[in-house]
C-alpha cells in the first residue's frame, strides 16, 4: 500500500491532512492512505462557503462503491470554499489527494491550532501502528 506522506503538511488520526496557506487560510483533504483504503471514489460532498465548523465536525462525505466515509474538520473555523471541481471529477481524490483532490478551504478560528496537529512523522507512526 502506498504511503505518500508529504513532509510539509499536518495530519489527523482520522486521515485528514491540512495545508497552511500564505493568506492565513488552510486547505483540508484526505490522505493518500485514506483514498487507497476507500478505493474508487464516486462522489464527494463538501461544506458550503460561510459554514462555521468546530474541530471534529463531520462536514464532508467521500463515497466509494463499497463505503461512505465522513470527513472530520481538523480545525475550527469558517469555510471559504468547497472544491467544486469534485462534483464532476471525484476521482481527483484518488489521483491527486494532496493537490486537485482537496476538499475544502477554511479560515481557522485559531491559527496556532494547526501546530497542535500531527506532523508527518507523527502520522507515519499512526499508520505503522494501524498496520500491525
Amino acid at each position: 500500500m502506498s504511503n505518500n506522506v508529504p513532509a510539509d503538511l499536518r495530519y489527523t488520526k482520522s486521515h485528514e491532512w491540512v495545508r497552511r496557506n500564505s493568506d492565513g487560510t488552510a486547505t483540508v483533504g484526505i490522505t493518500d492512505h485514506a483514498q487507497h483504503a476507500l478505493g474508487d471514489i464516486v462522489f464527494a460532498e463538501t461544506p458550503e462557503a460561510g459554514r462555521t465548523l468546530a474541530a471534529g465536525d463531520a462536514c464532508a462525505v467521500v463515497e466509494s462503491v463499497k463505503a461512505a466515509s465522513d470527513v472530520y474538520s481538523p480545525l475550527a473555523g469558517t469555510v471559504v470554499a468547497g472544491n467544486a471541481a469534485l462534483a464532476d471529477a471525484p476521482e481527483k481524490i484518488n489521483t491527486d489527494p494532496y493537490g486537485d483532490g482537496w476538499l475544502w478551504q477554511l479560515t481557522p478560528a485559531d491559527a496556532a491550532a494547526v501546530d497542535a496537529l500531527l506532523d508527518a512523522a507523527g502520522y507515519q507512526r499512526v499508520l505503522a501502528e494501524s498496520a500491525e
Binding site: F43, E63, S64, V65, K66, A67, A68, D70
Partner: peptide
C-alpha cells in the same frame, strides 16, 4: 449508490 444503505453505512 449502496453506500447510503444500512449494510455499509450502519448507524449513519
Amino acid at each position: 449508490l449502496q453506500a447510503r444503505e444500512q449494510h455499509i453505512r450502519r448507524g449513519k
